[in-house]
């Protein structure tokens, strides 16, 4: 089983009205890897996650999750969208949002009950905001919103997790909590793919990296892939401002 890659992307091209967002991407994620996707704005990072989740139609190419089409393995994939992608004024509680992660297992028509509430509470405890369970979601801070989304992904009890900028706009303590959680999940055999913006922390937090800018620039273990040369090719000349000389990290 563990020889099957968690994600295989082959010759994937995605375009919005003829302008390519992703050009012929080939990319493989091994199971139990902790992978960062990095690249400038508009590089197609979110689109790549959405292509894996079958949320966008590719112009060409193929995506396999655990060796199968996404539709047949939905329940094994957990998704943490960008915090800003939903309306936080929606009339619902934190616990309710977390329970949404269980809807896939419930299937159509069955309503969540006491068991689901208990599972959701456990997940909230895991991300350290158990006491916010009954809070209206509009009252949450950015970090608390992010923890809520993580808890929602945790209850899915997936094998492969896709996370879109979980560190965006959170404080240092939340960032620590999240990275510890990612490490725990990895130790439990989960595969984690995370869109990550902070090049300073990337080598410390992640084992592998995909450098993306519409095309795949490089991918593989952080060491050997996350080089100055590759970063320059990904970000163009601007990388000097973003990343300290790599002599420091070697």
């Amino acid at each position: 089983m563990s020889s099957t890659p968690a994600i295989t992307v082959r010759d994937l091209t995605v375009a919005y009205r003829e302008s390519p967002v992703l050009w012929d991407i080939d990319w493989t994620v091994e199971q139990q890897d902790l992978v960062a996707i990095a690249g400038p704005n508009g590089a197609g990072k979110t689109t790549l996650l959405k292509a894996v989740l079958d949320l966008v139609d590719p112009v060409a190419g193929q995506v396999r999750v655990l060796g199968k089409p996404y539709r047949t393995v939905r329940e094994q994939v957990g998704y943490v969208p960008q915090r800003g992608s939903v309306d936080w004024d929606f009339p619902t509680s934190v616990l309710d949002v977390v329970m949404m992660g269980l809807y896939g297992q419930l299937g159509w028509l069955r309503q969540p009950g006491a068991k689901e509430r208990a599972t959701a509470r456990e997940a909230l405890a895991q991300v350290g905001i158990e006491e916010l369970a009954d809070r209206q979601i509009s009252e949450l801070s950015g970090g608390q919103q992010q923890r809520t989304f993580l808890a929602r992904a945790l209850v899915q009890d997936a094998t492969v997790y896709l996370m879109d900028e979980p560190f965006q706009g959170v404080d240092a303590i939340t960032e620590r909590t999240i990275i510890d959680l990612l490490r725990d999940l990895q130790a439990d055999g989960k595969t984690l793919v995370v869109v990550h913006h902070d090049l300073q922390t990337l080598p410390e937090y992640f084992d592998s990296v995909l450098l993306l800018n519409v095309r795949r620039i490089a991918s593989g273990p952080v060491e050997g892939t996350f080089t100055d040369e590759n970063l320059r090719r990904t970000y163009g000349g601007r990388v000097g401002f973003l990343h300290p000389p790599s002599e420091d990290t070697r």
Binding site: K50, R74, Y79, D87, T92
Partner: peptide
């Protein structure tokens, strides 16, 4: 009443609703 949970999810987070097959 029948689709209470499906409508809630689709209204709050359409992307997750799609990903979960709803």
């Amino acid at each position: 009443l029948l689709f209470y949970k499906e409508l809630k999810l689709a209204t709050f987070d359409a992307a997750l609703a799609t990903a979960l097959g709803f």
